[in-house]
C-alpha cells in the first residue's frame, strides 16, 4: 500500500511537477482552442459538400470522410510530421497536429452535421425558399440552427473525443499535458505526475460528459 501511494499518489512529487504540468495543461488548452474550431469548420464544409446537388462533389466528400475516418489519427500525425519532410515539407509540431486534427476531426464532425442536416425536413427548405430566401440563406438561418441543435449531444460527445485525442501530440514532442507529465515522470522515476495529468483530464471532461447525458435525455435520444 505504501509503495502504491508513494508511486502513484505522491503529493510531494506532484507539487514539484506542478509547474511543468500546468504549462502542459495550458498547451493542451491552446491546442483545443485551435483544433476544435478547425474541426467544426472543416466538418461544416464536409457536411455541406455531402448534401451538394453535384454528384461529383458528394462522391469526393464521401471518399474524404471514409478515408480520414478509417486512418488512425496517430498514423496520420506521424505521416504529416515525420513523413512529409522527406518530400521537402517541414512544419512545426503545432502545425502538424493542427493539420492532422483538421483532417480527422472534420470527417467525424462532418458526418454528425450531415445527420443533423438530414434530420431537418424538406418542408423547412421549401417554406424558406418560397419566401425568396436563397439556398445559402435558407441553409444558414433555417436549416443549420435546427440541424446543430438536433445533433448537439453528438457534437459535444465528439468534442470530448477530440480533447482526449490531443494527447497524441506528445509523439511529435509537442509539450502538451501528457508530454509534460511524462517528462516529469521520467525525471522523477515516479508515476504520480501521470496520475495528476489524468486527474486534470478527468475534472475537465467529466462535467462535459455529464452534460452530454443531460442533453441526450432532454432531446429524447
Amino acid at each position: 500500500m505504501e509503495i502504491f501511494l508513494f508511486q502513484f499518489l505522491n503529493f510531494d512529487i506532484m507539487r514539484q511537477a506542478w509547474p511543468i504540468i500546468f504549462g502542459g495543461a495550458q498547451m493542451t488548452l491552446l491546442l483545443c482552442l485551435a483544433v476544435i474550431p478547425l474541426g467544426l469548420a472543416g466538418g461544416l464544409v464536409v457536411a455541406t459538400g455531402s448534401i451538394s446537388h453535384s454528384r461529383a462533389l458528394r462522391l469526393v466528400t464521401k471518399a474524404y470522410v471514409d478515408f480520414f475516418r478509417a486512418v488512425p489519427p496517430l498514423v496520420l500525425l506521424i505521416v504529416i510530421y515525420s513523413g512529409l519532410p522527406f518530400a521537402g515539407i517541414r512544419m512545426t509540431p503545432f502545425t502538424a497536429v493542427c493539420i492532422a486534427f483538421l483532417l480527422n476531426a472534420s470527417s467525424f464532425y462532418g458526418e454528425i452535421f450531415r445527420a443533423g442536416i438530414e434530420s431537418v425536413g424538406k418542408g423547412q427548405w421549401e417554406a424558406a425558399r418560397s419566401t425568396g430566401l436563397t439556398w445559402v440563406q435558407t441553409y444558414r438561418h433555417v436549416v443549420l440552427p435546427q440541424a446543430s441543435r438536433n445533433v448537439l449531444p453528438d457534437l459535444v460527445s465528439n468534442t470530448v473525443e477530440v480533447i482526449k485525442l490531443t494527447s497524441i501530440a506528445s509523439v511529435v514532442s509537442f509539450t502538451e499535458l501528457l508530454y509534460a507529465a511524462d517528462m516529469a515522470r521520467s525525471v522523477t522515476y515516479n508515476t504520480s505526475p501521470i496520475v495528476l495529468a489524468a486527474f486534470l483530464y478527468l475534472i475537465v471532461l467529466w462535467p462535459i460528459v455529464r452534460l452530454v447525458s443531460r442533453l441526450e435525455h432532454r432531446l429524447g435520444h
Binding site: G121, G123, E126, A127, A128, T131, L133, T134, Q146
Partner: peptide
C-alpha cells in the same frame, strides 16, 4: 426566381414554421 417567389406567397399543408 428568388425575387419572384417573394411575390408568390405559399402556405403548406404541414405549416412548415421554423421551430427554432
Amino acid at each position: 426566381i428568388n425575387a419572384m417567389r417573394r411575390q408568390i406567397g405559399m402556405v403548406f399543408q404541414a405549416f412548415n414554421l421554423y421551430p427554432h
